[in-house]
Design a protein around this nucleic acid. Structure first.
Lengths: 264, 264
DNA sequence: CTGAACGTTCCCCCCAGGGGAGAGTCCACG
DNA sequence: CGTGGACTCTCCCCTGGGGGGAACGTTCAG
């Protein structure tokens, strides 16, 4: 039996942290002295402690660590871990996007932005919608678009697009809708016909991969305000040229359309 | 002038967050109505808001964001940003190490560990020591070792090594010492002669890069306890084969020596 | 003029710990 | 056997970067 201090030295987890893990029912000491409350650990708990330590280094929440530890099947367990590694990859992608965006922001010579004011008529498309958290958007988008492609195969009349609550770009959750234009929108699974309302949009085109698209959003916003307008309603994006069309991200063209109304 | 809600939609920062940034003196509204407390922002503040947003996505602390924003010189500012990007790279390295470590931990067939009990005599070496936080160790180590190499050039009598407080492996800060053995340890800058005390060490060798060394630590710890001993004092590492000797990390050999004493 | 939408402050919550106080326990040495 | 120092216990507050919601004030278009 090892005291908490010895176990701490052996696992390189601090005493405080070990106590917290006990409290969280993550790593229960082999023996707890009933009268003194002293915790005693067994050597066989060292590997478990190390697994927890590594998972925490990967920013896996304690609740998920617990779920992983309680999974007996090594295969399922490996899958859970792989899922978190995928999450890390996604985070890395976001980091890369932020770096690109930042470089563009700090560049001294901002090119003038080309904005078109467009009256968009109402139209009906094949869509998938949901209320999602902004962290889950990319995952959700991939699934929804795959389902759309499968549902309207052979009847696509234009590039895909989406409509996103402004809240989605912040920390919160909001309504998201992705669509494929189709002559006869089907109703299968999550796919159903949706009527996009008419709107007056300020439209600009972001060229290249999505990294740095936020900068374009900012420039569009500035244009809108400087032209005595204000923004309202969900943002629309049209993936004019996207991963469906070319594997070269530099050739992608994304239309950003912001519903506006004239002030003053 | 934009209300906080409009500014929020334009920058994709939540209203809450904008208020917080005001409170933190990070992004002050252009105008604050004295009587109502209403915040009003200018279009020219959009780029600043975006820079903050991107930096926060890179996990730059608000205090550092503030420092970056208040730096007028673009060159110095770029250097500050680059410093944070370097920090991200380091974090990525740690993440990779944790992944390797985790894989090794979850592997079903642990190879038996080869441990040698060794009575290490006291000896004097050229050393650099400091009290550092565990996050800064790698940076500190690189600088200290460079200084050592420069100070004892031509008089190196063995592989470099280090001695690290157990606390350093946890979340806290502790004493660290790195050394190069030398016939006549010089005293230059931070480099000075240090007498390493005699100790009985349980020694094992970690092969390959440092990724996953924590697993070896755990196995060594298990060995120590199962052989009726206990650990005491700072851990010692000897970089028998390291980056000084070969650029192939797979060939690195690191001796881990843990001061032990017999219990029973 | 009125009600909806928007704004304000204030307080508590989240995570995964760190710092420290005050008190109890263990054990080796004398 | 006693004692002193190292160790351990619980408890409370702190961190950072927000989110949720209450209670209340302001703005502005119909």
């Amino acid at each position: 039996m090892l005291t908490i201090g010895e176990f701490s030295r052996l696992t390189h987890l601090s005493v405080r942290t070990l106590r917290r893990y006990h409290g969280a029912a993550l790593l229960e000491p082999a023996v707890v002295d009933e009268t003194t409350g002293y915790r005693y650990y067994g050597v066989d708990q060292i590997p478990t402690a190390q697994v927890i330590h590594r998972l925490r280094e990967l920013d896996v929440p304690l609740s998920d660590v617990q779920r992983i530890l309680r999974t007996p099947d090594p295969g399922v367990r490996a899958a859970l871990v792989a899922e978190h590694l995928q999450r890390l990859e996604d985070a890395l992608d976001r980091t890369r996007a932020a770096v690109v965006s930042l470089r563009r922001l700090l560049r001294p010579d901002p090119a003038p932005i080309d904005v078109e004011l467009r009256a968009e008529p109402a139209r009906t498309v094949a869509a998938v919608e949901a209320v999602v958290g902004h962290r889950d958007i990319e995952t959700w988008y991939a699934g929804a678009m795959a389902e759309l492609e499968a549902a309207v195969v052979g009847d696509v009349t234009g590039p895909p697009g989406g409509s996103y609550d402004n809240a989605l770009f912040e920390q919160e959750r909001g309504h998201a809708l992705v669509y494929l234009p189709s002559a006869a929108p089907p109703r299968t699974g999550r796919v159903h016909p949706v009527s996009l309302p008419a709107a007056e949009l300020a439209v600009t085109t972001h060229v290249g991969e999505h990294d740095g698209i936020e900068v374009t959003y900012g420039e569009l916003g500035t244009w809108v305000v400087e032209n005595a307008m204000s923004v309202a309603g969900p943002v629309r994006e049209v993936y004019v040229v996207g991963p469906r069309d070319t594997s070269d991200p530099a050739a992608w063209r994304t239309e950003i359309g912001w519903p506006v109304f004239r002030v003053t």
